[in-house]
Simulated scan of single mutants.
Amino acid sequence: MGSLIVSLLLLVVVAFAVVLFLHFVPLGLWISAMAAKVEVGIFTLIGMRLRRVPPAAIVLPLIKANKAGIEVNANQLEAHFLAGGNVDRVVDALIAAQRAEIPLPFTRSAAIDLAGRDVLEAVQMSVNPKVIETPVISAVAKNGIELKVKARVTVRANIDRLVGGAGEQTIIARVGEGVVTTVGSSVDHKDVLENPDHISKTVLSKGLDAGTAFEILSIDIADVDVGRNIGAQLLTDQAEAEKRIAQARAEERRAMAVAKEQEMKAFTQEMQAKVVEAQAEVPHAMAQALKEGHLGVMDYYNLNNVLADTQMRETIAKTGAPSPTEKK
């Protein structure tokens, strides 16, 4: 019984040792590499395990590249993997570029991949150009008519400018700017409707792909629609604004006139109050003059006669009756 337990323990230890050995020594990959005539040492594979690099992620793309006749080594692929790159995609891009006779060294392909761009898609786009459709671009001609333009831009990837070059959004923005400029310089919107190719020719001649990761092959106008009469709307808005300004100024003048009228009324009332006050002082002044001898009795009677005659004339004037002078 004891010997049986010892045998089982020995068997378990041996099995664990074999599994551990096969884990650190990928014999299958090493045999595959040797069969494909790819020089990868067994200690190199063990080192990949210790560096936490999956050997299959390096050996299989290396075999693929070797069969395609591309000169890369395990150290280059492992360094790209440790930098966070996609080794398999880079190798596929190198193979596609070689088949399409596009010069693409491994260092540039790895740099494009590490820059966050899909290098395989870029190579495929160099062979099969891509069509970028712009959103509806609103532009206004000189006669004030709005045109809604939609364009299709055919581009091809520029491998040399993939690192640091602008993307699709820049192409769309530049094409939109060119469409707005071209339509805006047209005297009549009918000229654009009759010859929409003038837009594509003018925009294409501006070199819009400068500094981008693409090469523009053609710009085609897909659709042109007539929109609003922006010029008439602006004139209407301007007239309405001028009308409101005139109304505001008239209201300001009316308010000033009302304020002036109120000021005159207040001044008149003040003067009337002063006259009443002055009239109230007249009897007192006359009494003082009589007392001091400055005014005689006859002078007082003559003054009363003049006042009575004045009141009579005012009464006649109000009633419209003929005055004593007119009767004579």
Score class of each variant (00 low, 15 high):
E39I: 01
E39V: 01
V40E: 10
V40G: 11
V40N: 13
G41S: 09
I42M: 11
F43T: 12
F43P: 11
F43E: 13
T44V: 11
T44L: 13
T44A: 12
T44P: 14
T44G: 11
L45Q: 13
L45H: 08
L45A: 11
L45M: 11
L45C: 10
L45G: 09
I46M: 14
I46Q: 08
I46K: 08
G47F: 12
M48S: 10
M48F: 12
R49F: 14
R49N: 10
L50Q: 14
L50G: 03
R51K: 10
R51D: 11
R51Q: 13
R51I: 13
R52D: 14
R52G: 10
P54S: 13
P54I: 15
P54N: 15
P54G: 10
P54H: 08
P54R: 07
P55C: 10
P55G: 06
P55F: 12
P55S: 09
A56R: 09
A56L: 13
A57P: 09
A57V: 15
I58N: 01
I58D: 01
V59F: 12
V59Y: 12
V59R: 03
L60D: 07
L60F: 14
P61M: 07
L62P: 02
L62F: 07
I63S: 06
I63F: 08
I63R: 01
I63P: 06
I63K: 03
I63W: 04
I63L: 06
I63Y: 04
K64W: 06
K64D: 08
K64G: 15
K64E: 15
K64A: 11
K64C: 09
A65W: 02
A65S: 08
A65N: 03
A65Q: 04
A65G: 06
N66C: 07
N66S: 12
N66I: 03
N66F: 02
K67L: 06
K67E: 01
K67H: 04
A68D: 00
A68Y: 05
G69K: 15
G69Q: 06
G69H: 10
I70K: 05
E71G: 08
E71A: 09
E71D: 15
V72T: 06
V72E: 03
N73A: 00
N73M: 03
A74K: 15
A74G: 12
A74T: 07
A74F: 10
N75S: 12
N75K: 05
N75A: 07
Q76G: 09
Q76W: 15
Q76F: 08
L77A: 00
L77D: 00
L77K: 01
E78M: 03
A79F: 04
A79V: 02
A79T: 03
A79Q: 06
H80M: 09
H80C: 04
F81A: 03
F81M: 05
F81N: 01
F81Y: 07
L82D: 04
L82K: 13
L82Q: 13
A83R: 02
A83G: 02
A83Y: 01
A83K: 05
G84Q: 00
G84F: 00
G84I: 02
G84K: 02
G84N: 03
G84M: 03
G85I: 01
G85N: 02
G85A: 00
G85M: 03
N86Y: 06
N86A: 02
V87A: 04
V87N: 04
V87T: 04
D88N: 06
D88Y: 02
D88L: 05
D88A: 08
D88H: 02
D88P: 04
D88S: 11
